[in-house]
Simulated scan of single mutants.
Amino acid sequence: MKKTLILAGVLGAFAMSAHAQSSVTLYGSLDAGLLYANNAGGHSLWAQGSGAMSNNYFGLKGAEDLGGGLKAIFTLESGFNLNNGGYKNGDSGFNRQAFVGLQSDQYGALTLGRQYDSMNQYLAPLSEAGLGFGNNLAGHPFDNDNFAQSFSVKNAVKYSSANYAGFQFGGMYGFSNQANGFANSRAWSAGASYNNGPLNVAAGYLQLNNSGSYGGNANGAASADQNISARLQRSFGVGANYTYGPAQVGFVWSHSQIDGLQSLGSGGMNLAGISGLNLHLDNYEINGAYHLTPALAFVGSYTFTDGTVTGTGTGDQSPKWHTVMLGTDYSLSKRTDVYLAGVYQHASGSLGVQNGVPVANVAAINTLSPSSTGNQVAATIGLRHRF
């Protein structure tokens, strides 16, 4: 009897030890509020907003200690509309991330599945749309560089290095999953960052072949969640920010080269007259934040987007956008905050051709339907909870 009790105790202790070496975490972000836009699709808009600041999602992530500094890891993450509970863009399942892999304390992590690209991982956090405060409305026109996480990449193999005295790097390749079209609907990216005390610098590159619905391959790497569908899309950029006491200031430049456009949209509405054209965009963003108290922060950003359109048959076009965002955020706790933010965008030049006549460019604040004019104003007040 005594031996049986001793054996049961040993087995129980071993089971508890094994359990302690594994973990599964439920996490997510819930963001809802009231939204006003002076012109969305030609009409003023009053609406309950879902994810105006941060994307709404929930997920599971886990790790199992395999010994010797090696872990098995996984993440399953779904984006959804908080207003109606439906999946993001009518998609189903784990539409943001779904991957499994191995992580080494010394060498980094190798993961396989649906994931965000390396440019989004390293460079996007330096932009206003990717900062800890988060602001989807401040994303660059059409989220052309994916800093606001409009889409993730499917069928992806990704490497993320360990942290070497503040330096990190990585790369990703998304397979087309086509037997007779290896290069069609594939994606690849690379990125790196260096964080040393108050200074953080980063760079990244992303390429998509036949993005969105252009390639006609629903199982390809390029996701139909993005606002752009084109034969070839390249985005790259650099950025830096500096923190001094309660203040932080940053600068980000990104370039998006979009060739063979099929569709271009914002807020679920596509622009007219752009099929077959080439659109090249340079985004110059200055952003900053100041914590008046540990709970109260003020944030702002200004982005100038300079564009060139070719292939119109009427000469090159030069669309431009000026986007200004101001906001304040108050933390009720470590996980819950309230916010107030306003965005103004002014557009000029022309973008697209209809019946041989250039189409006037219009304002299109990220996540909102385009304005019918060159100006658009939006404001939101809301509550956000992270867990």
Rank of each mutant, 00 (worst) to 15 (best):
A124V: 07
G171Y: 02
T111C: 14
G12I: 00
A63M: 10
L292P: 01
G327L: 05
G356K: 05
P319C: 05
M53Q: 15
F58R: 04
G220L: 07
A156T: 15
A295T: 01
V238G: 09
G139N: 02
Y107L: 14
G342I: 09
Y330S: 02
H19I: 03
G28C: 09
A63C: 01
G315I: 07
G41H: 06
S372K: 12
Y122L: 03
P198H: 01
G342F: 08
Y330W: 02
H43A: 14
F167H: 05
Y36H: 11
Q178Y: 03
S161W: 00
T4H: 13
G79E: 14
G215A: 12
Y107H: 12
N361D: 15
N89G: 00
A15E: 07
H385Q: 10
P246N: 09
T314F: 03
N38F: 02
A218R: 11
M172D: 11
G197T: 04
G42L: 03
A179P: 01
Q178E: 13
S50T: 10
S254N: 13
H19R: 08
G212A: 14
G204E: 15
G197Y: 15
M325T: 15
A72G: 12
A129W: 01
L261D: 14
N217W: 06
G204V: 14
F387A: 09
N270A: 14
P370H: 09
F182C: 02
T303W: 02
L30C: 01
G113C: 07
L112I: 10
V153D: 08
Y164H: 11
T303D: 08
W253I: 07
L35G: 07
S275M: 06
Q257E: 12
N219D: 15
D145Q: 06
D337S: 07
R231D: 15
G49F: 02
G69F: 11
Q48M: 13
D117E: 14
Q257C: 05
F74Q: 04
